[in-house]
């Protein structure tokens, strides 16, 4: 899937957000998806943080990859990308601590854990494997993260209502959340084949 004109740009977007949703189709980044999806507000904050990290990581790793290829060091891809992601997460953490302390404390341990969020590493490696150009890489990162945000906010909305609903005691909390995640995933299967 390449971006050649405006039409293909929108197809690319739909593909990233709905068809190949990181959580519901690729099953990447499930830890924060389950960990921070109890409130819509924090879920949105997490989604924005991941969007920022994924977007910038796609941009920076594109250039890092150029350097690695030029030096013939493609085998260092994983460690170099993780270095980029870790540094970015550190930056986001500092920024949030300063400007959004309430969100910072709400995200807690999950903010530094974006470092090890497999979805972020996956998007950078996918960019390289599909040999996307700079624009496609950034689009893939940002739209992929928006898909993640869509998933986590949907989940948070459902969980907020589950909180107050009368469900069997043994299903309260995580069991019902996992079932919800499964049902959402099945629903998202309906988008498969929308983009060829």
């Amino acid at each position: 899937m390449r971006i050649t004109d405006v039409g293909s740009f929108f197809l690319f977007m739909v593909n990233c957000i709905l068809c190949n949703n990181f959580i519901f189709s690729r099953f990447l980044g499930c830890c924060p998806f389950l960990g921070v999806s109890s409130k819509v507000q924090t879920a949105t904050g997490m989604g924005l943080a991941v969007t920022f990290v994924m977007g910038i990581a796609s941009l920076v790793t594109y250039f890092v990859n150029l350097i690695l290829v030029a030096l013939g060091l493609e085998y260092l891809q994983t460690i170099a990308f993780i270095l980029v992601i870790a540094a970015l997460v550190q930056f986001v953490e500092m920024f949030m601590k300063k400007s959004m302390p309430s969100l910072y404390s709400a995200l807690g341990i999950y903010l530094p854990l974006i470092t090890t969020n497999c979805a972020v590493l996956a998007v950078t490696i996918m960019n390289v494997e599909n040999s996307y150009n700079l624009f496609e890489s950034v689009c893939n990162g940002v739209f992929g993260a928006l898909g993640f945000m869509l998933a986590i906010v949907l989940m948070a909305g459902v969980r907020e209502r589950l909180e107050t609903s009368d469900i069997p005691k043994s299903f309260k909390g995580f069991p019902s959340s996992l079932i919800t995640a499964g049902l959402l995933s099945i629903a998202f299967m309906g988008f498969q084949g929308l983009v060829k």
């Binding site: 890092v64 350097i67 690695l68 030096l71 013939g72 060091l73 260092l76 460690i79 170099a80 270095l83 980029v84 540094a87 550190q90 930056f91 500092m94």
Partner: peptide, 18 residues
């Protein structure tokens, strides 16, 4: 040497920015 320079350089740049 290339590997050391590349990763070390990246680390140094990120360290500085951070």
């Amino acid at each position: 040497v290339y590997a050391l320079l590349a990763l070390g350089g990246l680390g140094a740049v990120f360290g500085l920015v951070l």
